[in-house]
Amino acid sequence: MNEQALRWRSMVGVWRRHAVCLLRTWKVALTWFLIEPAFVLIAMGAGVGRLIDELPGHGSYAEFVTPGMIVGMAMFHALFECAWGCFNRIQQGTMETMLTAPVTLAELAAGEVLWGATRAIISTLAVGGFALMLGWLPISALPGVALIAAIIGLQFGAIGLCFAAASPSLSTLTLVFTVLATPLFFFSGSFFPIEVLPQWLQPLAWLAPLTPGVHLARGFAVGAMDMTHAWSALYLAVLSVGFFPIAVKLLQRRLVK
């Protein structure tokens, strides 16, 4: 039902619920936050990277792949929280129960997406921190990369929420990972420059919703920006707010009958 403007405190209340949950299981969460970046970065940078020569303008392969990995992981974390997490809580009825508090549906959705972005930032600080130690990411790049990761978190948090609200079952929900996230992860310029793709595929790769994030993060990492980054920033801005109203609509259809 249509209601007044978003109330900040209610959104923070939703966010806080997730923070409390994370802190309840902080030991598991902490291990994961430490192991995951080590895993990912070492496999890509030190493993694959040793087989690959320097990339012109990017230094080593490890330096090239690091911002892409950071943004890709940010996407996965936000999607996981908002698709899987919200789907479960819709199924268990706790999402519906939260609406019996003085909170609107849009505030509930906003709180979920803010949490998705928070997870993206945490992941970025973990992977980024590790990359700093290895010398694969300059410290000056970290704030910019973290900002991009946060925006990617908002964007994919909203996308995840759309899937959570629209999925009738777990098997349709997993499509968000198999059909959306995994191809995006590989074809958004994280692992190789888009220029090496076949001509006809390049425009598609540039339009993929993860590409602007990767492109901008790499711009921060390299420390040089051009017009293409301005376009990416514009596209990212549209993507980061564009899915939220759809998520609210779908959630409304799911929860308000």
Binding site: R7, R9, S10, V12, G13, V14, R16, R17, V20, C21, R24, M98, A101, P102, V103
Partner: peptide, 15 residues
């Protein structure tokens, strides 16, 4: 969430 946290959640949602 535990028992108290369930209650507190609703307080926070109410601002």
């Amino acid at each position: 969430l535990n028992v108290t946290q369930n209650l507190e959640l609703f307080g926070y949602l109410a601002g």
